[in-house]
Amino acid sequence: MTVSVSLTVNGEAVSADVEPRTLLVQMLREELGLTGTHVGCDTSQCGACVVHVDGESVKACTLLAVQAEGADVKTIEGVADGDTLHPMQQAFHENHGLQCGFCTPGMIMSALDLVKNNPDPSEREIREWLEGNLCRCTGYHNIVKSIDAGARAMRG
C-alpha cells in the first residue's frame, strides 16, 4: 500500500509513491537521492537530519513523508547558489566548523533558521539554539564561531 506524495524540494516540484510509514528523511535520501540530509541517532535527538519545512527547521526523521504533502522543503543541497557556497557554508569552511562533517548539514540548516528570526545572535543564543544538534567530534566551539561569522556575513 503506497500513497503518492507531492511536494516542493529545493524549488523543484517532486513526487514519489511511498508507504505511509516512510519518514521524510527516507523519502529525501532513498526516493529523491538527496543524501546530504543525514540520519544520525534516528531518535529525534541529534539533529543531523534537520531540514526546513515551510521555512521552519524540523527533524526529518520525526516527520512522515505524507505529512509533507504540498509543503515547501529545503535541504542542504538547496542552500548554495550553484558552485558558490552560501555565506553560512563559507563561514563553516573558513572557521573549521566541521571535523568529520556528519552533523554539518543539520548544523547549517538549524543555524539558518536561527538567523532568520535572530539576525545578530549572541554566542549564548547560538549555543542555546544548538541544543538539538549534537556533534560527536566535540567541535562545538568552532561551530559557534562559524555561525557567528555566517550571521555577520549574511547581515552584510
Binding site: G47, S57, K59, T62, L63, S110, L114, W129, E131
Partner: peptide, 8 residues
C-alpha cells in the same frame, strides 16, 4: 525539547 521539537 529543542528548537526543532518546539517547531512541531
Amino acid at each position: 525539547g529543542d528548537p526543532q521539537v518546539r517547531n512541531r
